[in-house]
Amino acid sequence: MIPDRFEYVAPSSVAEAVGLLQRYGAEAKVLAGGHSLIPLMKLRLASPRYLVDINRIRGLAQLQEDDGTLGVGALTRHADLETSELIRSRYPLLADAARVIADPLVRNMGTLAGSLAHADPAGDWGAAMLAVRAQVVATGPRRDRTIPIDEFFVDTFTTTLGPDEIVSEIRVPKPSPRSGGAYLKVERKVGDFAIAAVGTYVVLDEKGACRQVGIGLCNVGATSLRAKRAEETLRGRVPDEKAIADAARAASEECDPASDLRGPAEYKRDLVRVLIGRALRRAVQRAKGGA
């Protein structure tokens, strides 16, 4: 459990960090919380030559609303989201998700931005961010790029982030009136990667029909997935039991799980169906003002 030799650098500004990435390119990895990267390094599955530790950069740990969005900084930890009154009162999906990521030790260190950049299909934030249609702000040598979450994930451990870019912020749209969200996960034990997990976000119109629907799926594909057909199934409809069941079935059909120790693909598909049903019911209940 001893990593390969690597060079450690701790820049004090984002510009300096980007400069290092420019210099070292694919040889460098950004270190934020480290709870995905360090275990891979200790097993020598990942052996970056340079580790660019951004933890000393000031001003990257914000968690606040402005301009119609919630800004989550590159160094905002899972635990910051978990314990934030703002998140708890206004972003139920995020609050649900923050509570079920790994265990408290990991949550104290791990970051939302790092989790997205790592692009593990089992990362909970990927599914959650897809559901709420977040945007990823990438800072590189030129001006910042804002990447819609739908364009961010390319494949397992692979994103559209350039080798000289870092995720400097995540922007989550402010919740609309009559909106609600939920995140549900089935895991083998607390702290495990999900067997399957789902995030749901709905905005109801005045007649109680779904004006907007967001559904993200975790660990049932090569990347975090958006359940597009499930969303379409529900959009414009009153979310009654029939509509919810149709959406749940659509999601279970469009996901693409692989069989592994957590279970066969058929089980994961069925779990997606069950969890989407439950999470949609909870999101709708919350949209109607329930807890």
Binding site: L43, D103, K189, G191, D192, L261
Partner: peptide
Amino acid sequence: TFAEYVVPQATD
């Protein structure tokens, strides 16, 4: 690894 061999913790 402990990611695949599931040892329960206090919460489990």
